[in-house]
Nucleic acid binder design. Sequence first.
RNA 1: GGGCGAUUAGCUCAGCUGGUUAGAGCAUAUGCUUUACACGCAUAGGGUCUGCGGUUCGAAUCCGUAAUCGCCCACCA
Length: 876
Amino acid sequence: MNDCSPTLGAIYAKWQEKGLFDCHPESDKPAFSIVIPPPNVTGNLHIGHALNYSLQDAICRYKRMKGFDVLWQPGTDHAGIATQMVVERMLAKEGVSRHDLGREKFLEKVWEWKAQSGGQIVNQLKHLGCSCDWRRERFTMDEGLSAAVRKVFVKMYKDGLIYRDKRLVNWDPKLQTAISDLEVVQKETVGKMWYFKYPLEGDASKFIMVGTTRPETLFGDTAVAVSDQDERYKDFVGKNVLIPIINKPIPVVTDEHADPEKGTGAVKITPAHDFNDFEVGKRHNLPLVNLLTKEAKLNENVPEKYRGMSPLEARPIVLEDIKALGLYDHEEDNPMTIPYGDRSDVIIEPWLTDQWFVDTSKLVGAAVDAVQKGDTKFIPDSWENMYYSWMENIQPWCISRQLWWGHQVPVWYGPDGKIFCEETEEEAKAAAEKHYGAATELTRDTDVLDTWFSSGLWAFSTLGWPNENDEHLKKYYPTSVLITGFDIIFFWVARMMMMSMYAMKQVPFKKIHLHGLVRDEKGQKMSKSKGNGIDPLEMCNKYGADALRFSLLIQEGSGRSVLMSEARVENYRNFTTKIWNAVRFCEMNECKKVEGFDLASVKLPVNKWIITKLSEAADTIAKWLDTYAFNEASNALYHFMWNTFCDWYLEAIKNIFYSDDEGAKAETRAVVAAVVDEMLKLVHPFMPFVSEELWDKTADRKEMLMETAWPALNAYEDKAVAENQDWIFNLVTTVRSVRSSVNIPAAAKITLKIKDATDAQHQNVESNAAILKSLAKVEDIQFVTETGAGEVAQVVDGMTLLIPLAGLIDVAKEKERITKDLQNVQAFVERTKAQLANAAFVSKAPEQVVADKRKALADSEQDIAKMQEVLKLLGA
RNA sequence: GGGCGAUUAGCUCAGCUGGUUAGAGCAUAUGCUUUACACGCAUAGGGUCUGCGGUUCGAAUCCGUAAUCGCCCACCA
């Protein structure tokens, strides 16, 4: 916590020292809890993390201010594959492989690494301002969390939900482990389809032609399948054909898998190397011939000349050999997808092994029901459909990994292979003794679990489970909301739902807010290879964490992508600077906090106006944050702060500060100080550092900004006064606009004449004369009954504004300007008249709509008359 | 092949249950060295709301359809 900014570091340290991040299970405040999506312990903060954590921090800070007892539960994930790879790479530099060390020593090295350089990301989170309860930091390999893993595994095993099976799995030959379906990414390529002949056994003149994308697997063929509807191959069914090269006879079988429409209608069946063929093999009791080693090299089941080659190396040689035999027919280009490992980026092979599976089909029911009942709500809810459809088509989850780093499967085998699944070795031994009638030597299963298995328990394992009496578990579970990226909805969200419904009989979180991906300015995914990444820490250093956070927050809505570029961060850095300068201005004008000042005593309309606007902004921002619409909330804050507070309010009160009305000055100073205080509270969830720093700078405080309550100012709102004030500001804009369009020099003071003002308008202008004069650069305001020559005119709200220009007026231009204006209003009047003449509209539309139209029509007609009057004077 | 989402100003997006003379930020133009801020202030220009059809007194908003783009899932002998 130093390379961001010493000041920010100090503020962060102070929050932490005061215990402001801590949860208080003993308090009677209502709970609000979030578990962090645990970053990999190997991780470095990237921009996607920055988005995810900024959202959570904003919500947590806001909820604290709203009176909740907040727990933001932090921690890291042991990240089986990633971590093992990191440590292996480190060892490789010393010329050591993990196999040189052996499992136990290697795991020691991993823990050493973790102690020294693991979890850097936790410190990086602090740079962002994350207000996690760090006392409660957890790691998925902690003893408590590991106990949770063992307990759930054993329970699932005993409930028949976890089983061991020999079947085809996705095998990663680089990492040499099985991986789950989700960890396989399909890449589009244009491959080839090769066609060649399988001669009929005993009659080489007859043959079946097959097409295949993987000719090198023919050594593992154990049948050729055709459709029972396919006349072409009727005579072959039940007979044998010979595998080219090795001349091994295999049967021709009929199977639904063979589609007469595709290829030649005949399929070679390689049950040990293709998922579909595996199923065909099962239906026909075909033998399984495994051709690959765990490195995915051809093994002893292929002729010697091919052994040790990779499938891709063997393929052209096999094809040459088929050609040499005269069995080759032709080839075609074939668009296809090839499976790759998401971590290793090598081709994944279906491979026959013993693995552990979760029978997810038995878990999905409760997980789906919970969402259908609304116990967990998706935000945005469009994700629910995707969740349902994935759940409905769920496949068994392969949870075993042939790695060393991870939760070792709590399974021991007896000498006869009997399985003892228990939470501890002692229990397993006891069970074995009972089973065999004597103490028996057991060997432990060497597999570890898929990292997502432990992540699936994260929402309750971090809160103390399996200790059901843990006060944190009791108070904070189910958690209030999970905030995470939609990309891990299946990996994590769905699994958490299943695991939680199974182990806890409760949902893990009541809401789930799914946010989009961070992309570059052009909407492209950020990647190292493209070099279009944005480093969040660099942005923090250059522009401050607040600017980075805000540029992320203001874009996050409806789960859409968040586009990032340095220019955007820079842009919102300007916003932090603006706040800084505004507060500085207030200080310079001696706006000091007045103890005991009662906002209800405020008299000046402009002050009542800002208080009303502030109150409205507090409610609006709260409303949006409550619905996780971070973009809307951020926009509301930006608009209030910059537009309402700086551009209007501070400009409007300058004339008070420069006047000698001490009473008005005193009231305004007190109001400014109070408004700044409340405004900083609104800023705080979004930009905690700058707001806290200004809070500290502007007064002697008993409490830090972070621990203050969210503004509740509805009692001080005065909507009527605020509306009048809005009208005055609109009038200012109108005058400025006229000035600009007739090129009155910016610095020139003008006289403003107002004709046909109503009493209310007159009064409003009178009481805001000073503001009007200073903001519109008006020297003198006069209420008149006649228009004079040489005056620029503008009709607004039934009044005619007149600005004498001492003969400088360009009559032709004036006519054009007013005529254009007039035409717009006339067009509106025509439309509205037509609408009101429509009997169907008048009878069917709501009364209020019709009344509003009538009023607008009348007003516009009045304005038209005044414009025509002006034009007449111009000599039209 | 199945599903989902998007299409509104030059760019990025608001516009919730149909009634606004369709908004914001950025960018652009013009004018401002106004004693908080040029990382600023003021003003302005800019949109037949992707096309077509329908429902309705009334459609950016609802329905259908087409096109384009994006994403997810499945399959590809």
